[in-house]
């Protein structure tokens, strides 16, 4: 759920807005590296994709369902800097054209579900990639775990923001327990869906998964001499 207007006080909202602006500013410089002059059209289409997947409902049980938040998967698919731009643009468009998420909470939403999930997702993904075997089969696993971790971490950041700028007297222990507990479950769904989706993309266009590039680059052309078999001549 998006943070609405009035959940955090005005100074905290302004502060997160500044943090979000700085993060986007850095990402704007670095993203040109990831996508060169294709940045605008490609990032725009990926943003439309993230927006659309948030409309794809995954049934859980008893009529409830959830959807992908998409920060970690965006980082794995298009790289962290483009991922930051894409998620930020999604939240901005949702706030300005769809009245979803408060305009004063836009910075908070970008910090929580854009910067945090993308950064945590990417770092965990890279960390796992360093220790896991460098084969394509492990890429979706690393992506899934990264997505799983990114969600409760974002909820922790929210608890931190609430401790600074919250208005109700909720004991931090209770709030932390409730938020992290719920978001561990949500993260589980995010992780499984990310694992499955990245796996399906890798099966078709592995070159589109930026996180898989090191693995793809390490692959060498394998020449298998045709075995002279008893079944006859090769076609």
């Amino acid at each position: 759920m998006h943070v609405p207007d009035g959940f955090l006080d005005a100074p905290t909202s302004v502060a997160t807005g500044v943090v979000a602006a700085v993060g986007i500013g850095v990402a704007l410089r670095k993203a040109r590296h990831e996508l060169d002059d294709r940045t605008a059209p490609l990032a725009g289409l990926v943003a439309a994709f993230v927006f659309a997947t948030q409309m794809l409902n995954f049934p859980v049980a008893g009529g409830t369902s959830g959807h992908l938040m998409g920060g970690a998967i965006a980082a794995v698919l298009v790289g962290p800097w483009t991922g930051v731009l894409v998620t930020s643009v999604v939240f901005a468009v949702q706030a300005l054209l769809f009245a979803d998420g408060g305009i004063t909470a836009l910075g908070t939403n970008i910090v929580l579900m854009g910067l945090t999930t993308v950064a945590v997702g990417w770092l965990v993904f890279r960390g796992l990639q360093a220790v896991l075997p460098k084969t394509l089969g492990w890429v979706p696993v690393a992506a899934g775990v990264a997505a799983f971790v990114s969600v409760p971490v974002a909820s922790l950041v929210f608890v931190g923001l609430y401790a600074v700028g919250g208005t109700a007297d909720i004991p931090l222990g209770t709030l932390t327990g409730a938020m992290v507990g719920v978001h561990l479950l949500i993260g589980l769904g995010e992780g499984v869906i990310t694992f499955l989706a990245v796996g399906s993309i890798l099966a078709v266009r592995p070159d589109l998964v930026r996180g898989a590039w090191p693995v793809l680059a390490a692959r060498t052309l394998e020449v298998r001499p045709a075995k002279a078999t008893a079944t006859g001549t090769p076609a």
Partner: peptide, 9 residues
């Protein structure tokens, strides 16, 4: 979702 990403990209 994966197919949608490939189509969008």
């Amino acid at each position: 979702a994966g197919a949608l990403f490939i189509r969008s990209f």
